[in-house]
Design a protein around this nucleic acid. Structure first.
Length: 683
DNA sequence: AATATCCGTATTTTT
DNA sequence: TACGGATATT
């Protein structure tokens, strides 16, 4: 085995590459930008490039591969390892910007005044902390309508990641909060202070500190030298801070290689912008650009439709995808009677393809938002069709799961006041005022003070709970080493059991979740790894949660379009392709939002290899369980109406699906003209 | 001071 | 509709 990567295999990374891909793999000196259209063999090209670097003697540890998700990094490195046949290839440093930042900061954080034992706040924690601060500062009282916590959090993140000052951020994206600029500034200042005091970082801080490190005089050059080669995937979805980090990291060597497709930029809401990709040649002088526009994935009719959709966009790097896969079928656009009929139709088609020999694994149902899948999920379950849903999953945001994580965080970083806040609030008879007293009492040694029962300012009612908590925390600590993470979770779950029963509904389901969390924890070597990995790379699908035994089984994929990025399936069903969903009504406040929705549709369509079905319900019912059937009419996405010629139009037979007969009694026609047009367009 | 209740409103995508 | 947040009650 060890000798396998000599001789002929040496060049295997050039096998099966077209001339442009080959150029990208072999390019040597200076920055390289690969403009890679959908399905153009981007992953193969990047993996081959890594393989070539390792094969030619580069030290794997000194190659940095930044990807959009951990899964993408893993797949790419597996592929590269297969190409080199050299197991050392898997030692390439890979992961998301945030995950790499976490690693770098644990190692070098002290150079920018950071305690390397920091814990990481997820989006919910961040909002929570902002909410506490807002209250502390006495805002939002006396009927004042100060922006709510999630809005405050969005404003902050937008400001940081786009590097635009507060006032212009408010003007452009949050005009209704404009007059609150001064108080927002106070909240943000307090927020920054508080985080620093308690050794916690939010997602944005990870990037900010990494950038500070990359730009610092002492450590910066050290970091730049650490990585001989830097490869970045999905460059169109980078934000300004990430672009800065790369500039800091790559000045000296210039060995940066970025891959992206500006037509697939869909993370504007996270302050990512394809602008950074367009500006790449200016950031990195001497850039060579290679364009991959040959599509290996889809049939020509599918590409024609996708190209027609994206043709309306203002372009950066122009490219027209082409394929030599002819294909006789145009994608099919179907107006369904309502959501139920749509779910029925999707299931019918899935079963039909399966009977013709297409595995469920080779099919996917895509949608704009998580809840769009609900009706389909019900119907799939009813027909016993196994599926896994990606995106829109909120396992870690469920309050009982957050309770466990807060307990772990206390053990990991006892000065994490936010975690204490949550945990203490669980105790019977303890509310905001008692918590404040306790935190004041804690001083420099919160855990020590809490574990010492004497002199704790606790009310009588909390005595039992407090004792149980003390026991649970003690159980999780041992000399010389703490018990394994799974054991800790198990013990904490015992403490939480009665509290869950008392405080939350659906207690049984929640207890099951904790069991899943326990088996999930078994995969981690330490508590701190469990915590940071879970926050930086949360389970992205129902199957990522432990306890799902069907990994070998055949199952259908359900996914948000965002989570489907990079994926491909033989048969793709895009559902809810109606105006208001794609584009989402909420994206319409500014023109850039609309364009992003167009690209979102483009991403969805280009996931399909052989067969593409697009559906939308014509009627949306307002109250699913109401006595009347008040509804509004859906029209096809405005992006589709300009490209109808690229689609086969069909309408399912009226008998299929429920509610298709005319039993409407008290119909509310919110948009009669639209309904009229909708009927014309679908007839 | 903690908890129960009521009212109004926003409502997506994810590291 | 579900959730966040303020007010009323114990």
């Amino acid at each position: 085995m060890a000798a396998a990567y000599t001789g002929e295999r040496m060049f295997s990374w050039l096998d099966d590459l077209n001339p442009e891909q080959r150029q990208a793999v072999e390019h040597r000196e200076g920055p390289l930008l690969i403009v890679a259209g959908a399905g153009s063999g981007k992953t193969r090209t990047l993996a081959s490039r890594v393989a070539r670097l390792v094969g030619e003697g580069a030290t794997p540890e000194r190659i940095l591969l930044l990807t959009f998700s951990r899964r993408a990094a893993r797949e790419m490195l597996q592929r590269a390892t297969r190409l080199t046949g050299d197991p050392r290839t898997s030692r390439v440093a890979g992961g998301t910007f945030h995950a790499v930042a976490n690693r770098v900061l644990r190692q070098h954080g002290t150079a920018v005044g950071l305690d390397p034992a920091f814990t990481i706040l997820d989006a919910t924690d961040t909002s929570e902390l902002l909410s506490v601060l807002r209250h502390d500062l006495g805002l939002g009282e006396r009927g004042r309508r100060f922006p709510r916590k999630d809005t405050v959090s969005s404003i902050y993140s937008r400001m940081v990641n786009s590097q635009v000052p507060l006032v212009p951020v408010l003007d452009r994206w949050f005009p209704w909060c404009r007059h609150e600029a001064d108080d927002l500034r106070r909240v943000f200042a307090a927020y920054t202070d508080r985080k620093r005091q308690h050794g916690v970082l939010d997602y944005d801080d990870l990037l900010l500190y990494w950038r500070a490190l990359a730009q610092s005089a002492e450590v910066g050059s050290l970091l730049a030298e650490q990585f001989e080669h830097v490869l970045v995937d999905e460059y169109q979805d980078t934000n300004a801070v990430q672009a800065d980090i790369l500039v800091g990291l790559c000045t000296a060597a210039g060995n940066i290689c970025a891959v992206g497709d500006d037509a697939q930029a869909i993370y504007g809401f996270r302050a990512a912008s394809p602008e950074h990709m367009l500006a790449f040649p200016e950031h990195f002088p001497g850039t060579t650009i290679v364009t991959l526009d040959r599509n290996y994935r889809s049939t020509t009719p599918i590409l024609v439709a996708a190209n027609a959709i994206i043709a309306g966009a203002e372009k950066g790097f122009s490219k027209q995808l082409w394929s030599d896969r002819p294909g006789s079928q145009r994608p099919e656009l179907t107006a369904c009677h309502d959501e139920t009929a749509q779910a029925d139709l999707v299931c019918d088609r899935v079963l039909e393809h399966r009977e013709r020999g297409v595995a469920l694994r080779d099919m996917a149902v895509l949608f704009r938002t998580g809840h769009h899948a609900a009706t389909v999920e019900v119907e799939l379950a009813r027909r016993n069709i196994p599926f896994v849903k990606y995106g829109g999953l909120k396992f870690l945001e469920a309050s009982h799961v957050k309770d466990v994580l807060a307990l772990l965080r206390i053990l990991d970083n006892p000065s994490d006041e936010l975690a204490w806040h949550r945990v203490l609030g669980l105790l019977e008879g303890v509310g905001p005022a008692t918590i404040r007293k306790l935190l004041a009492h804690f001083g420099d040694d919160p855990l020590g003070r809490f574990l010492d029962p004497a002199a704790l300012p606790l009310p009588e009612a909390s005595a039992d709970d407090a004792a149980a908590l003390r026991a649970a925390l003690t159980d999780c600590r041992d000399v010389p080493d703490d018990p394994p993470p799974a054991v800790q979770v198990e013990r904490l779950a015992i403490f939480l059991g009665p509290i869950i029963d008392r405080r939350y509904d659906a207690a049984a389901a929640r207890r099951t979740d904790l069991e899943e969390l326990t088996s999930l924890a078994a995969a981690f070597p330490s508590r701190s790894r469990l915590l940071s990995d879970l926050t930086l790379d949360p389970p992205s699908s129902t199957s990522d949660l432990a306890g799902s035994p069907h990994l070998d089984d055949d199952y259908l994929t359900l996914s948000t379009i965002h989570s489907a990025k990079g994926g491909e399936w033989k048969v793709v069903h895009l559902i809810h392709a109606s105006d208001g969903n794609i584009p989402s009504d909420m994206a319409l406040s500014e023109p850039a939002g609309l364009e992003e929705e167009r690209r979102l549709l483009y991403v969805a369509l280009t996931r399909a290899r052989d067969t593409l079905y697009v559906t939308y319900p014509q009627r949306y019912f307002h109250r699913r369980h109401g006595l009347d059937d008040a509804h509004t009419y859906g029209q096809p996405s405005r992006f589709l109406t300009g490209a109808l010629g690229c689609f086969e139009r069909s309408r399912p037979s009226p008998e299929s699906g429920f509610g298709s007969s005319a039993h409407s009694t008290s119909v509310v026609e919110a948009d009669p003209v639209g309904a009229f047009l909708g009927d014309l367009l679908s007839g």
